[in-house]
Simulated assay, not measured.
Amino acid sequence: MGPLGHADQLLALFQASVPGGQLRLQRLPCERLLRLWLADPETFGTRFDDQVVSAIMAAPPYWSFCWASGQVLAGRILANPDWVAGKRVLDLGCGSGVVAIAAALAGARESIACDLDAAALVAAQANAGANGAQIRIAPALEAIHGPVDVLFGADILYDPDNRPLLSRLPTLADEVWVADSRVKDFSEPGYVKVATEQATTFPDMGEWEGFNQVNLYRAARVAR
């Protein structure tokens, strides 16, 4: 299936969650090189009835927004291509696929977008096509075989049930980067805080300002 086919499929998936909603190919404000199929802001300027709101909350189309942490990681990768050049890279919880796409454009040998949400994998493929990037998709960690050089996770801790992943990730890759704007008590052993950057989810959802502060953490591989 070509890029346009993925985009059409993506719109159908979006409208299943947001009846009448539209997607638009948009350039990211913080990284103008990248374009993603994201929710048209006018879609969310409409007042939905309670039934539609309930449907959206039951299966949120997270991939239709580019979250602050994903933007920060993508920008860092494009500014520092040596992080990924010639390496096998994994974007865990890829959502829109922005991090995997940035890695591919920065010269990764293989860039894998992994997400449990099948719609997110369609989004990653559509967005990769829009940027002329080659990525691979994986529906779960268990579907990825062989060594991984660098693993990226952007805002994967929004769900508290994902916190135990932090101790597992350094067993899966030589280097792990976690970008997070949600957890304010991050204290996982083995991770070092590297930087803090500001970014806003795009399209802007008017979130609490604290969610615009993205912390970057790095960990090195540990033995299984």
Rank of each mutant, 00 (worst) to 15 (best):
L165D: 13
E209H: 14
D159I: 12
D115K: 08
D117P: 00
V84C: 05
V98K: 03
D49F: 09
D49S: 09
L34G: 13
L90G: 10
E175N: 13
Q198L: 00
A120E: 06
R218M: 10
P41M: 12
G70K: 08
I101E: 01
V53R: 09
I101V: 13
Y62H: 09
D149R: 13
G86Y: 03
L90D: 07
D174N: 13
S181P: 08
A219G: 06
F211T: 05
D117E: 08
L33W: 01
I156M: 01
V150F: 10
P139S: 09
A39W: 09
N127E: 10
Y217E: 01
H145A: 13
V194P: 05
N80D: 08
W37V: 11
W177A: 07
D117C: 07
A173V: 07
F186G: 14
A79C: 05
Q22K: 08
I137K: 09
T171R: 10
S187P: 00
A124I: 02
L216F: 02
P19L: 07
M205H: 11
R35V: 08
T46H: 06
L166I: 02
P164W: 13
D82W: 11
F48Y: 07
A16L: 14
A140W: 02
T200E: 15
P81A: 07
G5D: 15
A104P: 04
P81D: 07
Y158T: 01
H145W: 08
G95I: 06
A113E: 02
R168Y: 03
G97I: 12
A120I: 08
Q22A: 15
A123D: 05
V183W: 07
P41A: 13
V194I: 15
A123P: 07
V192T: 15
L34E: 15
Q71I: 15
L38N: 00
E197K: 10
Q51V: 15
L10V: 12
P164C: 14
H6C: 03
K184D: 14
L73A: 12
A223H: 12
G93I: 04
P203T: 08
E42Q: 10
L11F: 04
D82M: 00
D180K: 04
A58M: 11
S167N: 11
D91T: 04
P160W: 13
G107D: 04
I137S: 03
W83A: 10
Q15W: 00
E207W: 12
S64G: 06
D185W: 04
E197R: 03
I77W: 13
D8H: 07
Q22W: 05
L34Y: 05
G2M: 12
A39P: 03
V89W: 08
D91G: 06
L28W: 02
A220V: 08
L92T: 05
